[in-house]
Design a protein around this nucleic acid. Structure first.
Lengths: 299, 299
DNA sequence: TAAAAATACTCCATAGGTATTTTAT
DNA sequence: ATAAAATACCTATGGAGTATTTTTA
């Protein structure tokens, strides 16, 4: 049973004639006849009574006709829906963001995305990097915003922002008046850092390693704001990405001058995944938004 | 978009792999890949993300999957229904019968039909011959029971009963003691006959013509019972088919001996019409029923 | 290296075409 | 005689096969 057979069957039922059905279907009459015969053969029963002058559905044909029409109609609908959807800016985009980026980076991007793609449903989840990568693999998020680089070339990464690191120093601290610092300048200071699992901790550890610095960690937290208020209370120093600067005004932020004392943020997708228009729109927006923002953030 | 493409598509979605889908579909992997590619081409979008290790539906694929399943399922249901119905003894049979046969012939046939085909719905309409033939052509009745012969070879007729004609004579009439009569014996008698339009009138007229008899018609009615009660009241004579004999006991019934003074009843269908099992069952029953009945009726 | 999908080609089954016959009007 | 469907036969598209390459894990 093939689709063209059903189409021919419906055409014959509609026109009451093999010849007219063939004409309507743009095939030769014998071709159409053959296909109807074949269909009848497969079903083991006649679908039409050939009455010389005209052709009429048998009872069996009458039972098949509405079903055949249903099948053909639903096929067209399915096709139509797919073709319509593929170009639509609708659909859903699920974005995963690491916690040390989320509060600084997301608000403007989300705002302009929902403005530019009002039909799309945007979902954001905040997770640490390994969980985001796992969810990319599992397909439960479409895009991840996180610190690069990452391992595993099943992913495709688009870096769009490299930001310097800043030392957060108590206002009264001796180093507070410097315009730039080297990490080694802080080798005697007590450090307040993010808890393990947050990738920015790894960024920091890597930078310290490069500076042959073994920081004396006296406090750990899950968010910058806690660290910074303790720095303000003269408990020690911390290192934060540019994004977190001015989170707390009770301390000074001084640029770290070390080579590679930076953090790179990027968008990551699973390699080979096809991206809907909404997905691509989100990615484009992320890059555009950031390049527009960078001068401001860097000022 | 072809059915096998949808089948392959569902198979890949089910198995999460082109190779396994190909195995399950009993085709080679490249063949299946080609068809999926072709389907994606036609739709203008990817249905699967090829992730090297595994294959996963895209959002578009996810929208297509349930629709593809629906189409395939409904196709199977349609096929199943047709194949089931074609061998079933169910369905409806609409039978048309001429008025001069209906009351005598139908009751036993209907009884045994409904007994033998309880699932079938039997409908009976009573009409005169030309209307029955028209309805056969229009397909509003499946079988007609009427007097043969009929004109028009768009019909197929199965004669199953040839019955002699009887003269209905008042009991006190001079001819009432004869065992057999010739039509010419009645040439002086006043005739009571069926109204024009009833085919038995034509049967009678034809028989009279053959006997060179021009009957003096003094009364016409639409049914034998009226004629016979008037015969019983000594108003004249009538000619009836064997079926109507003993309809009224106030007159004598004497066999007409003339050659061809008979009426033949047959079943008629539109030539070329396919007959369901119920139709064929009805026709078989009609013949069988009658051959069983004839000795009784003829006794 | 292994496993899976894509590519390159070959083949043949069959949908579709043309010519003709059959059938019914 | 005409019109419609069936039949016979031919053609060629394209679905499916085998062999191979590419890609990714």
């Amino acid at each position: 049973m093939e689709l063209h057979q059903l189409r021919y069957f419906c055409a014959v039922a509609d026109t009451g004639s093999f010849s007219r059905a063939a004409e309507q279907s743009h095939v030769a009459q014998p071709s159409l006849s053959q296909q109807i015969l074949k269909l009848e053969d497969e079903l083991g029963a006649r679908l039409f009574d050939r009455l010389g002058r005209s052709v009429r559905l048998t009872d069996l044909g009458k039972t098949l006709l509405p079903r055949a029409r249903t099948v053909l109609r639903e096929l067209e609908e399915a096709k139509g829906e797919v073709i319509e959807r593929k170009d639509s800016a609708g659909g859903s985009v699920t974005v995963g963001v690491i916690p040390t980026v989320a509060p600084y980076f997301l608000p403007p991007v989300l705002a302009s995305f929902t403005k530019k793609f009002p039909q799309a449903r945007l979902t954001v989840v905040e997770e640490i990097t390994p969980i985001l990568l796992e969810r990319l693999r599992a397909g439960t998020i479409d895009v991840a915003i996180l610190a690069l680089p990452i391992r595993g070339h099943e992913f495709e990464a688009w870096p769009f922002l490299t930001e310097p690191l800043f030392a957060a120093i108590p206002k009264r601290h001796a180093l507070a008046k410097r315009r730039v610092l080297a990490l080694r300048d802080l080798r005697k200071e007590p450090f307040l850092v993010l808890r393990d699992g947050h990738c920015f901790r790894d960024t920091l550890v890597a930078a310290c390693d490069r500076a042959r610095l073994k920081p004396k960690i006296i406090f750990e937290s899950g968010q910058f704001s806690s660290l910074l208020s303790l720095v303000g209370a003269d408990m020690g120093v911390s290192i934060v990405p540019e994004m977190a600067v001015k989170e707390n005004t009770s301390c000074r932020y001084i640029r770290i001058g070390d080579e590679e004392a930076t953090r790179t943020i990027g968008a990551v997708v699973l390699r080979g995944r096809s991206l809907s228009r909404a997905h691509r729109g989100f990615l484009a927006l992320v890059r555009q938004e950031e390049s527009g923002r960078r001068p401001t953030a860097a000022a």
